[in-house]
């Protein structure tokens, strides 16, 4: 049973990270390989706010959320906006470069040592007993709840609100959407903002659950097969993909060889992609897209 709880928690983490990939890819066909770094930047923003501005944990988290929105917006306006109209490969590589830049900058600012964020904002990550034999930490429980809320919110937003419709329309056919008067830049900026916000949320919660250092950005890489298995442009797909990858990882650690938990998700990913090249729920794309 504890294993099941572990799978659910890990699924939530991967799903919350993966939805960031999906949001940006869905509207602009750009894969944001700096997502892991942006996620950890969110957590470091919490370190900054709790150390400098707000002493109350909730206020610090709220401020961090606001900062993360600013970060997402600036990434688009200052950098990715310049890449619109460029080849997609160039845009993807720009995000790789952004990731390297962010990593270096974060070590410059916050140092290479790992920090205990929970202790900084006096967050007590107590163990909660769900049943006699199943326990999860407070932060992990928050993670599950937040992921649920974020997905609910995003799905409602995409399918019911005006801007959500516009985002979906731009993703399906940017040219047509632009002709119908949708401002693509606003749509892209919105996608980057939402993506960075959800990523930062994941970053804050996962670092509250353990510690923070720059290497935590690797979670971004691990959530990656999750987004791909489901199909890069489908939110429900990302959720299911996260479930598949998380279950695989936990079961491999538990029953086979933990060292395989890095390799096997990618091999499964290839197998699934060979059968369904656009993931389980992704939309089939036109052929000549790099």
């Amino acid at each position: 049973m504890q294993i099941l709880a572990n799978i659910v928690v890990l699924t939530s983490l991967y799903a919350l990270v993966a939805c960031g990939y999906v949001l940006v890819y869905k509207v602009s066909r750009v894969l944001n390989l700096a997502h892991g770094e942006l996620m950890i930047l969110g957590a470091y923003l919490l370190v900054a706010t709790s150390a400098g501005i707000a002493s109350d944990p909730l206020a610090a988290i709220a401020l961090t959320a606001m900062f993360s929105i600013v970060v997402g917006l600036s990434v688009y306006l200052l950098l990715m906006r310049k890449m619109t109209g460029q080849p997609v490969l160039a845009a993807v590589l720009t995000t790789v470069a952004l990731g390297i830049l962010l990593r270096g900058a974060m070590v410059l600012i916050w140092g290479p040592q790992q920090l205990n964020v929970g202790a900084m904002i006096s967050f007590d990550n107590a163990s909660i007993a769900l049943t006699d034999s199943v326990r999860v930490s407070t932060a992990a429980l928050w993670l599950v709840v937040c992921t649920f809320l974020v997905y609910l919110g995003l799905l409602a937003f995409l399918h019911m609100s005006r801007w959500g419709m516009r985002m979906r329309a731009s993703g399906q056919n940017a040219l047509l959407a632009a002709q119908r008067g949708i401002n693509l830049h606003t749509v892209y900026a919105l996608a980057w903002t939402l993506s960075t916000f959800s990523g930062s949320l994941a970053g804050v919660l996962v670092t509250l659950d353990s510690r923070i250092d720059v290497n935590m950005a690797v979670i971004g890489l691990k959530a990656f097969p999750a987004a791909l298995v489901g199909g890069l442009d489908s939110l429900p797909g990302a959720l299911i993909g996260a479930g598949v990858i998380a279950a695989l990882e936990v079961l491999l650690i538990h029953y086979v060889n933990p060292l395989l938990s890095d390799v096997v998700p990618f091999l499964v990913l290839i197998a699934i992609l060979i059968v369904r090249p656009w993931g389980l729920y992704g939309t089939k794309e036109e052929l000549n897209r790099v």
């Binding site: 952004l98 390297i100 830049l101 962010l102 990593r103 270096g104 900058a105 410059l108």
Partner: peptide
């Protein structure tokens, strides 16, 4: 770390 960031 400056050198690393500079590379990016």
């Amino acid at each position: 770390s400056a050198s690393y960031a500079a590379f990016g």
